[in-house]
Nucleic acid binder design. Structure first.
Lengths: 305, 305
DNA sequence: CTGTTAGCGCCTTCAA
DNA sequence: TTGAAGGCGCTAACAG
């Protein structure tokens, strides 16, 4: 003990990890190109914060692993060359092949969200996005809106499963009120500020919907800015519903009506899920928590007809 | 090679690190309580993104290390138990003792910003904050404002060195125009949304400054929201200058006049500095880049007197 | 209860 | 050119 003190001996963590095979590191894998899109989104910030907090609580730290490319091979390449007990994967798209590569290599992993509809890929904690789309749509229909647009993220011309689910819920609501669904109700928009702004500009050049559902926080801010810049009043001229952390939407003016779910709960569950996989325990699949509609000041009854 | 392929052999990264003594990991140390305050600030997001990108470019990944407490001992405890080639330290306050502990243990580190005025602690990349405070103050004085308030972050009743520098620059501008400095011109405000909002509310209960300089992005948003909620028009009733990434201030309405500096350059330099220390090379101290005043729509000539 | 040692998996050095 | 072995620093197992 004297010697430790006087020599300033510090045990080598590297050797400890080497010997024990445990690093108490959770890798968060994200593609380099994706990181900018994600870093400025309120939902990701909340998820990231919650992930970090939960990991800390469980004695883990988060290693941010950046992959140059977003495809399965690059992801796998980067993952297998990393020291971590398990991986949380933020995928820019569907990444079909990745799961089998990881399974084969027996690397524990989870996804930050639903990327696939295959039941065997159930290594994520979902919110009930069908329900989310449904309650948003239903609320607008209740307010007498029928000319609704749902703005979703454009990923290589398509959209991610969680948006597919929200759309499904939206259609369900339309069905319930016997309002026919039209393809142009779904508007694919890039998630960054300028691209979103331009997308909304394009939309309002030719059309004049009375209500918007917006699946991305940055796009939501872009929309509000567009309305401010062009003299549209929210909610008098357009009603707007956002999807994401309720906290964030309270910092906007007007305070936004939004569909929100408990991201800090979901993030904690996701870490639990990963830790279970790391320890080789049987995995308990969580029922998705129902999202909630928080009604604030950006939605109003449609008086147009 | 056949065997590698057929057995699915993956070299152990842990063993490699153990053997080589290089992990290609950069630890980013942050206190648990601080993380929420920081995660939602546009400046940090930009810095974090830039750090990640630069690290990736240099072949490193970022390990997010969370310390429960923010004091020097806790930081050191957590740092020494981590596998990383060097550390980037986000300190919640001054952390006097930390540098000597790290020096003694010969652990390479840099700070994300200036925490100390001691020249021997020059392991950070600074912006020229004196200049930043000066150009903001001068511009407002040029616009005939004299009743200016500078809102800075409240850290245990005081403020951090970069804010002290900005205040110094502000005073310099006042001096130049022979406007006497008054203590109440400096307003210490908590950096979170609600606390900021309340702080601004308190300020405007008793006073009616014609211009605000705001050192924190969230506080800036809170101020704009307060003005919206209470019928103050920006810039007609109050002029506002923000400090932070210009990009961010362009997403606000009105577009904000702001003092901005090249955070992605600074972050890259910071990583370079850390890598130099890791490699034991002599350290090149960068001259701070001059911040720039970006004039937009939130500042107007004071007509009051 | 204290003290010694084997071995984790890699890489570099040295020998054949 | 190919092959064998030592040692990084720790910890767990085992011997005294």
């Amino acid at each position: 003990m004297d010697a430790i003190e006087s020599l300033g001996y510090i045990p080598s963590q590297t050797a400890r990890i080497f010997k024990s095979g445990k690093s108490y590191i959770l890798g968060l894998v994200i593609s380099q190109s994706h990181i900018s899109h994600i870093m400025f989104n309120a939902g990701f910030q909340a998820q990231f914060k919650a992930l970090t907090e939960k990991a800390h609580k469980e004695g883990y730290n988060i290693l941010l692993i950046t992959s140059a490319e977003g495809d399965s091979e690059s992801y796998f390449e980067v993952i297998k060359n990393q020291v971590a007990d398990g991986f949380i994967i933020f995928s820019p798209s569907h990444n079909d092949g990745l799961t089998s590569l990881l399974e084969e290599a027996e690397i524990p992993y989870v996804f930050n969200m639903k990327y696939s509809d295959k039941p065997e890929d159930h290594y994520y904690v979902s919110s009930d996005d069908v329900e989310g789309g449904f309650i948003a749509g239903k609320y607008l229909l209740d307010l007498n809106h029928t000319d609704i647009r749902f703005l979703v993220g454009n990923v290589k011309g398509g959209y991610l499963p969680f948006n597919a689910d929200r759309i499904k819920g939206f259609k369900k609501a339309l069905d319930m009120y016997h309002v026919p669904f039209r393809e142009e109700m779904i508007v694919k928009v890039q998630g960054q500020m300028n691209e979103s702004y331009n997308g909304i500009h394009m939309l309002f050049q030719t059309e004049r919907p009375t209500a918007l559902m917006i699946s991305n926080e940055i796009t939501t801010v872009a929309a509000l800015n567009y309305f401010t810049d062009n003299g549209y009043r929210v909610p008098r001229d357009v009603s707007v519903i956002g999807f994401g952390p309720s906290e964030f939407f309270r910092s906007l003016r007007p305070n936004l009506t939004n569909v929100s779910y408990d991201i800090s709960w979901a993030s904690a569950k996701l870490v639990d899920l990963l830790l279970q996989r790391i320890e080789g325990k049987p995995v308990t699949i969580e029922m998705p928590k129902k999202p909630e509609l928080i009604i604030r000041d950006s939605t109003a009854r449609n008086m147009a007809r």
